[in-house]
Every structure is written in C-alpha cells, then in structure tokens.
C-alpha cells in the first residue's frame, strides 16, 4: 500500500506536484497524463527516489524520507529504458546480481535464478549477452531482475514506451499478471483494461481518479476538447 498525505513537490521554484493526497490500495493502478504533468515525479516519490517538498509519502507504512532503506526493500522500480537497468553482462548474471546484497549461498542463488529464467521465458537466453536481446526481452529481464528480491510493490515508469506493438502487449501482459501491487505510468491507454484504478495527472494535480474506462474517457475529452 502507498499513501500520499498532502504531498507537494517542486524543482527549485517550479511546482511539479501540488497537494496530492492518495491512498493506493488497489492491486493494479495506472497513472496517465500529458508529458511534463508530474507522472514520473509521482512514481519516484513512491520509493523515495524523489522526496516530497512538503507532506509525507508512505510505502507499506514506511516513510520514504526517513526510512529509505526499508522503502527500497519493499518496492521495486522499472524504468523506461531497459538498457540502463540491466547491469551485468549476461542474462543469468544480471538476475543473480539482484541477490548479491543478500549474500546467499551460491546454490541458492543458482536455484532462484533458474526459477526466474523459467518464469519469464528466458531459459534459452540464460548465458547470452544482455545487449543482444530484443527490446521486449530486455524489458522482461529488467522486470525479472527487480522481482528477484520479492518486493511487495513494483513501480513502472513508461515500461512499454520504447517497445513495438507486439512487445508492448507482451510486457504489459506480464506486468498485469504479477501478484505484487503495481503502479504503472503509461501512455498506452489501450493497455489499461485490466487495471483496477487509473489516475489522471494534469499540471501536477490529480485531475481524474477511477475505473480505467472513466479516467481514460475523461483524459481523451480533456486533450481533444
């Protein structure tokens, strides 16, 4: 669960979010809105990558300003560009890298890596250099790597923006199928059907908040006039 209590944020004297109060308890939450409206800032506030200028953000009850370590443990974050999120040379090595801070025995690491390769359909790519994967496979690997430490909440900032149509669907299928709570910032309005709640951000404020159909319809009317 994520909670925003009267959260405002500004870069210098430029306000990016203004007095946002939200209780995010639904399992699959979408965030939409125009470029520059504050979506990424909202997502980054959720795991303390960005701290509120005023107000409080709680992730699973942990204050993102004061309990950063705990917040990082309960949250995962997937960015738009998978190239910068894959940190080790091969697929299996990148998955294992996620477990490095836990200092587990090698056999346990191997077991968990194998299970994850299986779950994400990456078994055939196990020892391939990550840079030779397709865009969709890279993003799946980035998601798989973040899930290795089993966070309760996974945040996604435009995870499908750089992908072709087929891979957009494949990656969003995977995201929507996760058992974790997910918060997904996206411009792919067609992929929001199976979400439980969609929030529209406009000019740093919550402009609409409800079922996917309603929020998306409101958004379309807002931009198309």
């Amino acid at each position: 669960m994520i909670e925003f209590r009267s959260v405002s944020h500004r870069y210098g004297d430029r306000p990016t979010l203004q007095d946002v109060t939200l209780r995010l308890v639904e399992r699959r939450i979408g965030v939409i809105g125009p470029n520059g409206s504050g979506k990424s800032t909202l997502a980054r506030l959720c795991n303390g990558l960005v701290k509120p200028t005023s107000g409080t953000v709680l992730a699973e009850g942990h204050d993102t300003t004061r309990e950063t370590a705990a917040v990082r443990r309960v949250t995962g974050f997937v960015f738009q560009d998978p190239d910068t999120q894959i940190l080790m040379p091969t697929v299996a090595e990148d998955l294992a890298f996620s477990l490095r801070p836990l200092r587990l025995p090698a056999a346990e690491v191997a077991r968990r890596v194998d299970a994850q390769l299986e779950a994400f359909g990456l078994v055939d790519h196990r020892d391939h250099p990550a840079h030779l994967l397709s865009g969709g496979q890279k993003q799946l690997l980035a998601i798989a790597a973040v899930l290795m430490t089993d966070p309760a909440i996974v945040l996604f900032d435009e995870p499908t923006t750089l992908l072709d149509l087929r891979n957009k669907h494949r990656v969003m299928e995977t995201i929507v199928g996760l058992s974790q709570q997910i918060v997904v910032v996206t411009h792919d309005l067609d992929l929001l059907d199976r979400f439980d709640r969609v929030i529209l951000i406009d000019e740093g404020r919550v402009a609409a908040d409800g079922a996917p159909g309603e929020t998306v319809a409101f958004y379309r009317k807002l931009i198309l006039g």
Partner: peptide, 23 residues
C-alpha cells in the same frame, strides 16, 4: 545520460553509494 540511468537502477536494486548492500 546513460550513466545517470545506471546510477538510479543501482540505487533501486539496493546498491547504494557508500556500500554495496541494502543500507
């Protein structure tokens, strides 16, 4: 720009400046 992204990815995966573990 890529280095910025890599730094953030390291941070969210539990590798923080000043120590390579959850801190």
């Amino acid at each position: 720009r890529m280095a910025d992204g890599v730094g953030e990815a390291l941070t969210v995966r539990g590798f923080q400046a000043g120590g390579a573990r959850h801190g």
